[in-house]
Nucleic acid binder design. Structure first.
Lengths: 349, 349
DNA sequence: GTGAAAGCGCTAACAT
DNA sequence: ATGTTAGCGCTTTCAC
């Protein structure tokens, strides 16, 4: 290429070369125009069979990989979906993110992942960057966001989906369930089992708003039944260790507690371990209900009564909505999808 | 070719409007050229203080959000890093992905996430799409990939990092540890504790190559010490349930086993639960070693001896390398970083 | 059904 | 230090 400039005013500039084979190369080889290749790539049956197979051939031969960045720029919307969760270390969100990625993948949509670490400032920043990508959709966790976040998201035409929480003002679409209802169901279950002195043991409740909502629902339902609740908290993230500590503390200060709910199954597992060490019979002396139905919950001693939140359904539904929206379906504003939850009554209660 | 449309230039076409406020708007308001704005955005101290503050002002006033897609196209490399793992549902990879995202975020790099679900075909597809984004780097899990994957990755100039496995031929840079060494360390530990009839209990070993490597290392080290090993497997993904089943099966067919290693702590937890039900004393009658040091491992009864793999270090190191590479540092080809592992001797052995 | 042309918003080489 | 200029590779009218 460099040789051909003869009388030209200025030599071609030195540009970093980007992509070895472009759509133009494919078009040339297939003897069609670039726009036909582009069309073929997006709607294969909109081009004639002969052109189609020539293009397919050329793509294969040249080993062509389309540049989605260029495509995104030209189309004003990239095939990316931004998903922002507190942390994928948390099994609940990992489940949703995984389910979503797998579902979006079929439509060739990419997942851009962000972690807020339970920090609204961080979330705001993440949203700002997310919008820089002109994504097909933005997915956030929960309904609580900074003013600036709401403002940014309100102004864009990018679809916004809030997941894992229902029951507050939502930006656009929300998919999840009511955490107060989870708490209430837990309380009613324990009361139904004849328990009258209840406690709620929670980890990191100052940051985990949804755990707090479950706790609120728990207390409200108990109060309604005339049963009092003690709340024990620990600021560290959920773990069996925290659960063990909280139980040990509870038994010291409130030795006649007979029913316990925890902010999640990690904590409940720790409670179970500590009960074993303290020779507290579960469920005879103490009934226990967790939240999450994690991988160990059905296998422990005794098997743990818990709430299954269907995190994968949340992810699948979110993906479905995004895909439908891209297909040019109705914008579906302010939709709300309740994915529900299930109380699994096992032997710990 | 053919007739050019004569005379008057056609009126401006109707184009979907994309971005409300662009870099040009900022430049106009700040009374500088777009390239100065661009420069300011990338290297703020390369522009004069007066221009800088005028630009900052304009950005703020207009609420300008840069379009990274356009930037990526122009710069021939997007600020995205593609991370491909078996699944983020797996706590090990979740840890690494989270650590990486947080580290990359500081350099305004985005994480694009893909799940192979332990399928090389899927991985291949994911890599292909990843390259469509002209990412700053591609991160894959393990050293085992399809031919096509290796070919694609070999040809690009995109840095490739393989994580969570060391000890085989690598595409470019690898960060992780030797799983055979983990298995060997585990075997030696059990033997040192006086155990002579060992078993390795593994879940989903047909898909989880790294678990298999640990098993291999375990058997090799045991053989070297003249100790035989029985391997029990279950095809389902790791869970406490599978662990319980495997132990129960083991005790039926091999009642005099006195030392057990598991493919990971999920399985070990199940073993512990089943031992409790079967009244098998751990570690007196049976010593147990897991892998992973998961959130419950230190809290169970008895606390679980296990291997801590430092998944977050893997993520941090990968992020560091990517960032250094972007800074134009040496390409650092074929680098290998051993993040090691630690055996945590707790009461289960 | 297919092609020509006009950018999408930005970066970077070059000139000043 | 700042501006000029020429694309990056693709999508999308619009005309044929």
């Amino acid at each position: 290429m460099g040789q051909k400039n003869l009388g030209v005013p200025r030599p071609a500039r030195q540009r970093r070369k980007m992509q070895s084979v472009t759509m133009m190369d494919v078009a040339e080889l297939a003897k069609v125009s670039p726009s036909t290749v582009s069309l073929y790539l997006r709607r294969p049956d909109a081009v004639s069979a002969s052109a189609g197979s020539a293009i397919a051939h050329a793509i294969d031969k040249l080993n062509y990989v389309p540049n989605l960045v260029a495509g995104g720029l030209a189309a004003a919307s990239s095939r990316a979906v931004s998903i922002i969760v507190p942390s994928v270390r948390n099994a609940f969100f990992a489940e949703t993110v995984a389910a979503m990625q797998v579902a979006l993948r079929k439509e060739r949509l990419q997942v851009i992942l962000g972690h807020t670490e339970y920090d609204e400032r961080e979330e705001e920043d993440l949203v700002r960057t997310a919008l820089s990508w002109a994504p097909a959709a933005v997915v956030l966790t929960g309904l609580s966001h900074s003013q600036a976040t709401r403002r940014m998201l309100g102004k864009t035409s990018v679809p916004v989906i809030e997941i894992w929480e229902l029951g507050g003002p939502q930006i656009d679409t929300a998919i999840g369930f009511h955490h107060e209802q989870v708490g209430a169901a837990t309380a009613r279950h324990l009361i139904q089992q004849g328990r009258r002195r209840l406690a709620f043991l929670g980890a990191r409740m100052h940051e985990d708003r949804r755990a707090r909502l479950r706790c609120d629902g728990f207390m409200a339902a108990a109060a309604e039944a005339g049963v009092s609740v003690d709340v024990m908290q620990h600021p560290a993230p959920s773990s069996a260790e925290v659960g063990a500590m909280l139980l040990s503390e509870t038994m010291q200060t409130l030795p006649d507690i007979d029913g316990i709910a925890t902010s999640n199954d990690h904590v409940a597992l720790g409670v179970l371990f500590e009960c074993e060490r303290l020779k507290i019979a579960v469920p005879e002396k103490l009934a226990l209900v967790g939240f999450g139905d994690l991988s160990f919950s059905a296998a422990c001693n005794p098997p743990l009564t818990t709430i299954r939140p269907s995190g994968d359904l949340i992810g699948k539904e979110a993906a479905r909505l995004i895909i439908e929206h891209m297909g040019g379906k109705a914008p579906a504003p302010q939709m709300t999808i309740d994915t529900r939850f299930t109380l699994l009554h096992r032997r710990s209660s």
